[in-house]
Design a protein around this nucleic acid. Structure first.
Lengths: 191, 191, 191, 191
DNA sequence: GATGAATGAGCTTTCATTCAT
DNA sequence: AATGAATGAAAGCTCATTCAT
């Protein structure tokens, strides 16, 4: 693993566990097995490091969601793919989930979301495609005619809550339970 | 307003905007219009201040939810009361919403949630009663027979997502849209 | 007990136990059962309070030493009176001993000693009289012809060391042992 | 001189002159010619710095006492070596003397003395050996059969008093006077 | 390129002192 | 006369960042 990747991994794990201010640069360097100064050869400052860490995680997440994408199946099945895929990714990558949680509720994440939404180029959690699925579903009369943002909130909000409860140990989520949750979520958005 | 209240308010607002470590005690004191040392006459340390701030907000939230509670109406209407009430509170009190977001995703909030869930005495976001509403609904065959935690996630997750999108300006939520969202959420949990 | 006395007592005890910086004015006031501001009605500031506390203890010590003073006995017996009297006072008043220890090794005590020695009016630990006893003893050929300061060091140094060891529990000093120590000390200074 | 040594020296001098709380870390750093944060690269906190400073001084003192130790001479001459050696060290190193005075009368020193005395491994001021000299002297009938602690008090108490009087300028101690004092002290402990 | 020792601004907290009541 | 709430300067300590090696 090259130094840059090791630094990103160390940052992600540390921030997931301890938050931003529980993750000094020296500790990140230490965990990455590099010198403290070395981080600055790859990232201009801590803000940049954090944003790059986010991008790396987002990239992997999008990669997983793109796998086995049932492009030729119904809107419902494609949404299902995302719902189950996201829960699966989070459960298998609890560090990444926690990191994203830290990130989204911080100034970093808020700025990012604002930028994405207003620039219309959003693919947050793969959402651009999710958005288009909603649009197709609405057009086809399959999905409630609500603002996309509302549909998105129903979709993503439940999914994140459920994943968090699993990761923090409040419930044991298996495949069947995840599917039941996805079905319930579908009930929320289907017409 | 007495000094204690002014300090709590200043802490809540600053933390809402800047997070815990973007809120030095000196700045809180400054915004509250008191000396730095004065905070320590009311709160033992920063942790205590933060937890007391949470309790104050939680108290007000529970107060609002208790108003006009339709105790003699159907389970659906009572859940509706909570859903709309929570969204209403958050929209009218965006600082409080942001503060709670900071708090819940911090070690403070995680510890609290763990304690509440496992001690069974939870009234997180008024959730004890929500929990009992779910139980009644399940018993009556009105609500899906899913784990309470899942139902809770569907309920609270969507509600928070929607509130956040409004507060961050991604959507303009009015009474009608809130009700439509509540209806959609009901579709998710109803049998 | 009047307020002034209560404050002096509280200061002495607290300083004995915790040193100067372990004794905030607020704590002294608290222990004395008065308001924090009240101290300043009796003492200009903390320095004055500490110096007055010293004077009070010194006064009581001198009072004890003056009791049953064998003015008409031999130099040896009069020195003996001081030696045993000082040890006795310290053992019965360990707080006072510890306070004096704090005081003597602090800037307060050094300044005081300097002042006393150079002003020739010293009666530090009753020392003026001790000094005159040494002078009489030297003149009579009973005591070694050494500088008074040296004799004083032999006398007071051993006495304090022994008292401290008792107070800190390193030895159990009874009357007989105290007398043996006094005898040994006499051997040091006698010709 | 390396940074660690400069910090130890600065701490020792400042504490000697002003005591522990008259010696802020910032001032120590300043006098040592290093940044405030630098101290913490070498010492975990102020307590550790103080204890390490003590150990450094103690080490040098023990080194001096070990020089030219007359191992094959009489008990009296060996005690003499310590007595004169200690006075000599203190007079040549008044800062170190004052520092040790601060240290011994502080919680640090009391804890240390307690530990040393009860653990029997004491070499406080080189005292383990002094203690064994007392034991040999008692066994040989040369020294009074008093508790070691008492003998030690007679020995060390006078020595410290005399050194302090010299350092504070109350007397001018030369070799001859030091020896006379040592002789007087021997009179105190010899049978 | 890589390092990690060094830095100092900035943090939380304490406490001697003041002053309105 | 007595109070104790309020203050803010100053303390110990952390950590993002730099730079000589």
């Amino acid at each position: 693993m090259d130094k840059r990747t090791k630094i990103l991994k160390a940052a992600m794990e540390l921030i997931a566990e301890n938050g931003f201010h529980g993750s000094p640069m020296a500790t990140i360097a230490n965990r990455a097995g590099v010198g403290a100064g070395t981080i600055y050869r790859y990232f201009a400052d801590k803000d940049v490091l954090i944003n790059e860490t986010f991008k790396e995680v987002e990239g992997r997440l999008n990669g997983v969601l793109a796998e086995n994408y049932p492009a030729d199946r119904s809107v419902r099945e494609r949404l299902y793919h995302y719902y189950i895929g996201l829960i699966g990714f989070f459960i298998e990558n609890p560090m990444e989930f926690k990191f994203l949680g830290q990130y989204y509720d911080s100034p970093y994440g808020v700025a990012l979301r604002r930028e994405k939404i207003f620039s219309q180029s959003s693919n947050d959690y793969g959402s651009e495609t999710i958005k288009s699925l909603f649009e197709q579903g609405i057009a086809a009369g399959e999905i409630k005619d609500l603002p996309i943002v509302i549909l998105f909130a129903l979709f993503i909000g439940s999914l994140i809550s459920v994943s968090r409860d699993h990761i923090f140990g409040f419930i044991q989520l298996d495949r069947r339970l995840a599917e039941q949750t996805a079905d319930a979520c579908w009930d929320a958005i289907k017409r």
